[in-house]
Design a protein around this nucleic acid. Structure first.
Length: 417
DNA sequence: TCTGGGGTCCTAGGACCC
DNA sequence: TCTGGGGTCCTAGGACCC
């Protein structure tokens, strides 16, 4: 057993967006460190994006929560300093972290913009004791990149991740199998990875409040209550998890969605917002050399009721025009006239675009491809607002809504870590 | 000016085919 | 004529993650 024990690190940037923002500002002459005062990175409330994305530790002391509205956060902490997000900066910081970590092991899995798994198993003979190595990584990140991380060390990804969540910031923690009972079981059940709001409330109703409670429940009953998810969380509560470090798996779908600056009350404006989202999604598809075989749209009305509708595409495509036309059909079938707050579009069943299929029903496909390509080139050279559709002028809508994480599109993790 | 945006996976019901 | 059953595909919705 001991001979094939793995050694896994989970590296987690402390208050990532806020730390990165703080470092950048210090480097550019800011007199104060955002990490030392109650501060947060947050969206713009005037365009209805007003939530907390990341907070400093002093803000946390005021019980400011990630995901809550700026309004609510300011009630708790009137002096809270809120700064807008700069995603391109965060992507650069994330990249710098990964390239430093690659010096310690070639087996690295990027889990999100601010979390990385590192397999140290084969590196132990070279770099020595894992705890010392983790400390040295942590110190180098602090010294060379200016921000702090927590590192969890264990024999699998789940336990390493749980360990990195212990006391913060700037710490190394271990959580080996023989420490589960002492370090993990007393924690509230909602602290377990994959136990979210819905599961927590059901577990509470069954008298299960700690991870230890969950670990000791008969797995058969959990299966009865939660199906496969029940089996999964029972295993996680017992520290059972053996997924490998996966370096880059192919992306399965991509989408963009946005809360609109105003409620959409007419079909035409709805279509226009969809066009804006489609421009972004289609450009990302083309950028990756993929076509979509399935298109979905989603909407959220002013009462926050969500609905969605999807359609398989007879011929997979990345054409802005065809995707937009399909999105409009779906919109018309789905929308019942209630004012809309949010719209989204998502392309999935991706396939390589290398030999694309011609449809007998679609004429002018070659011309469309050429046009899309020309527009992409202009936008990548002169910026995404260098060429826009006239219908967005004075519309109050951004001509290309949604974030564009070009090149660095790392796949997110799932229930299998 | 209360409630973001990007993902993955699972389930359930109906259609359809043999 | 009183209700097969297995398989696959499609769609809608919900759970979870950061």
């Amino acid at each position: 057993m001991e001979t094939n024990r793995r050694l896994i690190f989970h590296i987690d940037v402390n208050s990532a967006y806020l730390s990165w923002e703080a470092v950048y500002r210090l480097q550019h002459g800011a007199p104060i460190d955002l990490r030392d005062i109650p501060s947060a990175v947050g969206g713009d409330a005037t365009t209805r994006h007003g939530i907390i994305l990341a907070k400093s530790i002093p803000a946390k002391a005021y019980k400011v929560l990630t995901g809550e509205t700026l309004y609510s956060a300011r009630l708790k902490c009137p002096e809270l300093l809120v700064v807008p997000p700069r995603y391109q900066l965060y992507i650069q910081c994330s990249r710098a972290l990964v390239s430093l970590l690659k010096e310690y092991s070639p087996a690295i899995q990027r889990f999100s913009i601010d979390e990385v798994f590192l397999d140290y198993t084969l590196m132990e003979p070279i770099y020595g004791d894992p705890i010392e190595a983790a400390h040295s990584i942590k110190e180098r990140v602090k010294k060379e990149l200016g921000f702090t991380v927590n590192i969890g060390v264990s024999s699998n990804k789940l336990l390493a991740k749980m360990a990195s969540d212990f006391k913060k910031p700037d710490r190394v923690h271990t959580l080996f199998k023989n420490e589960i009972q002492e370090k993990m079981w007393p924690l509230p059940v909602e602290d377990l990875f994959m136990v979210g709001r819905a599961t927590t409330s059901k577990l509470h109703k069954k008298g299960i409040f700690t991870i230890g409670d969950l670990a000791k429940v008969d797995p058969q009953s959990l299966y009865g209550w939660f199906k496969s998810h029940g089996h999964l969380i029972w295993e996680l509560a017992n520290g059972i998890e053996d997924s490998p470090i996966r370096e880059g798996s192919p992306i399965k779908g991509l989408g963009n969605s946005a809360t609109l600056p105003f409620d959409v009350e007419d079909r035409k404006t709805g279509h226009r917002a969809l066009l804006s989202l489609t421009e972004t999604v289609a450009m990302r598809l083309r950028d990756m050399g993929k076509s979509a075989g399935l298109l979905s749209i989603s909407m959220k009305d002013r009462d926050f009721i969500s609905r969605s509708r999807q359609r398989k595409l007879d011929v997979p495509t990345h054409s802005t025009k065809i995707l937009y036309r399909t999105a409009c059909c779906l919109f018309d079938e789905l929308w019942k006239g209630k004012p809309l707050r949010h719209l989204g579009i998502r392309a999935s069943r991706l396939q390589d675009d290398s030999q694309y299929q011609l449809s007998i029903f679609e004429t002018g496909l070659e011309e469309q491809r050429a046009l899309d390509k020309a527009i992409d080139e202009i936008r990548s050279r002169y910026g995404s607002d260098s060429i826009i559709r006239s219908c967005f002028l004075y519309s109050g809508l951004n001509p290309m809504m949604g974030g564009v994480l070009r090149e660095e599109e790392y796949p997110m993790m799932s229930s299998i870590l």
